[in-house]
Amino acid sequence: NLAEVVERVLTFLPAKALLRVACVCRLWRECVRRVLRTHR
Rank of each mutant, 00 (worst) to 15 (best):
E30N: 14
L10N: 02
F12N: 03
R29Q: 06
C31P: 01
R33T: 06
A3H: 04
R40K: 12
R8D: 00
C23S: 11
L36D: 01
R33A: 08
A15E: 07
V9K: 01
V24E: 02
V35G: 02
E30C: 08
E4V: 10
V21L: 12
V35C: 08
T38G: 12
A3R: 15
L13A: 09
R34Q: 02
F12T: 08
R8P: 00
A15F: 06
R8Q: 03
A17I: 14
L13Y: 09
L36K: 13
W28Q: 00
L36T: 07
V35P: 01
L2F: 11
E7V: 10
L18A: 10
V5R: 05
K16T: 06
H39C: 15
R26I: 00
V35Y: 05
E4P: 06
R29F: 02
L18E: 02
V24W: 11
V35N: 01
L13M: 07
C25Q: 14
L27M: 14
F12Q: 15
V35D: 00
C31H: 06
E30A: 07
L10K: 11
L10S: 04
L36C: 10
T11I: 02
L13H: 06
R33W: 04
R37G: 12
R33N: 06
C25A: 15
L18P: 02
L13C: 06
R37Q: 06
L10P: 00
R40M: 06
P14W: 11
R20V: 12
L36E: 04
R33Y: 03
T11W: 15
N1S: 08
R20Y: 05
C31Q: 07
R37C: 06
A17P: 03
C31N: 04
E30S: 11
R40N: 06
L19F: 05
R26M: 00
R40C: 13
R29N: 05
V6L: 11
R33Q: 05
R37W: 07
A17Q: 07
K16Y: 03
R40W: 09
V5W: 02
V24F: 10
E30P: 01
V5N: 00
E4T: 12
V6W: 14
T38N: 09
V6T: 03
T38H: 07
E4H: 11
V9G: 01
E30I: 08
V9P: 00
L27E: 09
R20C: 08
V21A: 06
L27C: 12
C31R: 09
V21R: 10
A22V: 03
R33H: 05
R34F: 09
V21F: 10
V21P: 03
L13F: 11
L2Q: 03
W28D: 00
L36G: 05
V6P: 00
W28F: 13
L10R: 08
H39Q: 13
A3M: 13
K16S: 07
V32P: 00
V5K: 05
L18H: 02
R26K: 11
V35L: 12
C25P: 06
L10A: 08
A22N: 08
R34M: 05
K16C: 06
F12P: 03
R33G: 07
E30R: 13
A22C: 08
K16W: 13
L2S: 01
V9Q: 00
A22T: 04
E4A: 08
R26Y: 00
C31S: 09
L27V: 09
K16G: 09
R29W: 07
